[in-house]
Computed example of a mutant assay.
Amino acid sequence: MGLKSQAGGNAEMMKSRILIVPIGSGMAMSALKDLSKADDLEIIVADSDPVTPGMNMGFPSFVVPSIEDEEFFPVLEEIIVREKIDLVIPCLDTFLIPFARRRADIERLGAKVMTSPTEALELSRDKWEMYTRLEGKVPQPKSSIDPSIIDELRYPIFIKPRDGSGSINAFKVENREEAEFYLSRISNPIIQEYLPGREYTVDCIADMNGRLLSASPRLRIRTKSGICTISKTVSNALLEEAAGKITEEIPVNGPFFFQAKEDESGLPKLTEINIRLAGTMALTTRAGVNIPLTAVRIFLGQKTPPIGRTKKGLYLARYWEEIYFSETQLESISSTALENAHA
């Protein structure tokens, strides 16, 4: 961010240009809300689906190929150059590692990329490796990748994929017969003790040296398909301490969050780590710590104001909201976005 001279000797603040991709994800829309209020940022969005709401909200929008397409990065990099992008924010789990691996190429074009190192991202995707790295440092459920453990654990137990996300193929299992059924159908399963207590998410941010700047716990009161729909900010010293242990062991830069659930004694145990923005970080922003905006400042090398503590006892409840757009608007995005990118 700097100053740009204008005729007559006046100066105005130069805006940093932020590209959010794909804008169709929940975390992208949450980040869009938190970042679009900043006067010194200009938001540009991209997605492979021109109908997704974020592509039709008045921001400069670009249709790009699917990330599985070999043309994805060449097209995106043309947009970065043409639009003079300062920072790219990948906003979907499947985008993170490809962007981390492409980071040096994108930075040569003049744009930063909001990702942690590839090592950290790969570790967060492999839950078994993550548990192994943090064993003895952060409380975690008794776990195994050896199916024979089903004879040692007291039912109910919990079975989930080693590399899953969003509660997909994650099941509470009541008996051995059910365990055998799910183990035969889930690829690379982890078998765990079942945690019956309250569930938490802890929204965190670290600087470019991996130093923890903030950890803000919130209670997951209600979820749907792994997405929190009702949440409340809370105090929990054990969870805040766990955040510090995680950053000591895993090279994290910028935003991340982890989830934990209480065992029968009330001890919160780590269940997963996601090294990215979270959709429900909107609650943490409203409670006083704008993690998306702070992360932008960090990755752009800008000075960040001191981070305080979040207000406790603040609730978030989600609801549907509609937007409307015309066929003409949609055709304009679909037909001209790539042409503009190649202009």
Rank of each mutant, 00 (worst) to 15 (best):
F59G: 04
F62N: 01
V63G: 09
V64N: 08
V64K: 10
V64A: 06
V64R: 10
I67Q: 04
E71W: 06
E77K: 13
E77H: 05
V81I: 10
V81K: 15
K84H: 15
I85D: 02
D86C: 07
L87A: 06
L87V: 07
I89Q: 09
P90K: 08
P90Y: 13
C91W: 08
C91Q: 13
C91H: 06
C91V: 03
C91D: 03
C91K: 05
L92H: 13
F95H: 15
L96C: 06
A100E: 05
R101S: 12
R101L: 15
R102Y: 11
R102W: 12
R103D: 12
R103I: 03
D105I: 09
I106M: 13
I106L: 13
E107P: 08
K112D: 05
T115V: 15
P117C: 09
E119K: 15
E119W: 11
A120P: 01
S124R: 09
R125Q: 10
R125E: 07
R125F: 05
D126I: 04
D126S: 05
K127P: 07
W128P: 00
W128Q: 00
M130T: 11
T132R: 14
T132C: 12
L134A: 08
E135R: 15
V138F: 03
Q140S: 12
S144G: 09
P147V: 02
P147M: 09
P147Y: 00
S148G: 01
S148Q: 08
I149R: 02
I150W: 13
D151H: 14
E152N: 13
L153N: 02
R154F: 05
R154A: 14
Y155W: 11
Y155E: 03
P156Q: 07
F158S: 03
I159D: 01
K160N: 11
G164N: 09
S165M: 10
S165N: 14
S167Y: 01
A170G: 02
A170L: 10
F171A: 02
K172W: 03
K172G: 03
E174K: 13
E174Y: 05
